[in-house]
């Protein structure tokens, strides 16, 4: 089923590490402008799938298409340029830099100054730098951190660090945003704020795929849920259907017993 409304298509993906089959025959797609939740017990292969989509390592078999274009052999940084951004489960901010500088690095793919240009500081480079700073402030305003622009990023409370990471990912103007457990470590009110922000991001036309253990958040925000278990896709559909799916219940309850 190929049509223009699918931004990301995952087709028959296999991946194994050594002798361990991490993913087998994964097949699904993300509709343009949708929010999709990827769930499954620990070790189901969610992070592996994320790493495949973002180009950290290649798939053994199958195809990943982004905007109709096969992207299997693209490198991580090239994929960002194409429009795929991600956040990390453990928040990977640049610790020696300020909040603002973190966002400025996020704008890396949307600016072009190289070593030579930086030495000579041509007028258009100054202009670019100025615009980048303005854009960075806007992004900070978007997540509500504009007052902390000059703080060292890792001095922020953990919840704010997640927001900063989200803003940094947004700086690359992604068409697809992958969020790896964005609510982990957040309290209730922070999670609420995050949910609101994710919706706002989607309203800007960004397609979102999220891995999340907070079921309340996942179920309320996602239009579609994909369930993985032991490297296989065991269910896919709207949240309500998935919640009552027998295979899913077995996977989760079975896991709970062991």
């Amino acid at each position: 089923m190929t049509n223009n409304t699918n931004l990301l298509e995952i087709r028959n993906i296999d991946k194994s590490f050594g002798g361990v089959q991490a993913l087998s025959d994964i097949d699904f797609f993300l509709e343009q402008g949708s929010i999709t939740g990827l769930i499954g017990p620990n070790g189901a292969g969610k992070t592996t799938l994320f790493n495949l989509i973002t180009g950290l390592f290649p798939a053994d078999k199958g195809e990943i298409r982004f905007g109709g274009r096969p992207i299997n052999n693209f490198r991580v940084n090239e994929l960002v340029r194409l429009g795929i951004a991600r956040t990390f489960q453990n928040v990977e901010l640049f610790e020696s830099m300020t909040v603002l500088e973190n966002i400025l690095v996020g704008l890396h793919t949307r600016t072009r100054c190289g070593i030579i240009e930086s030495i000579f500081r041509f007028p258009y480079i100054r202009r670019e730098e100025q615009q980048a700073r303005e854009r960075a402030i806007e992004l900070l305003e978007f997540v509500g951190l504009q007052d902390y622009a000059d703080r060292t990023s890792t001095d922020l409370p953990f919840g704010w660090q997640r927001l900063l990471e989200l803003a940094r990912a947004m700086a690359s103007k992604p068409r697809l945003l992958l969020l790896d457990e964005p609510a982990a470590g957040l309290n209730m009110s922070e999670t609420g704020r995050l949910e609101e922000l994710i919706r706002k991001v989607r309203d800007q036309g960004v397609t979102i795929l999220l891995v999340e253990h907070d079921m309340n958040l996942t179920m309320s925000i996602s239009e579609k849920i994909v369930v993985l278990d032991q490297g296989r896709k065991i269910a896919e559909g709207p949240p309500r259907e998935v919640q009552t799916d027998e295979a899913v219940m077995a996977a989760y309850l079975g896991k709970a017993k062991s």
């Binding site: 940084n77 990390f88 990977e92 640049f94 020696s96 890396h108 793919t109």
Partner: peptide, 15 residues
Amino acid sequence: RSIHDGEKAAAAIGV
């Protein structure tokens, strides 16, 4: 500096 702080994150940001 982003490479210094975290090479993986730097690549994931498009560097």
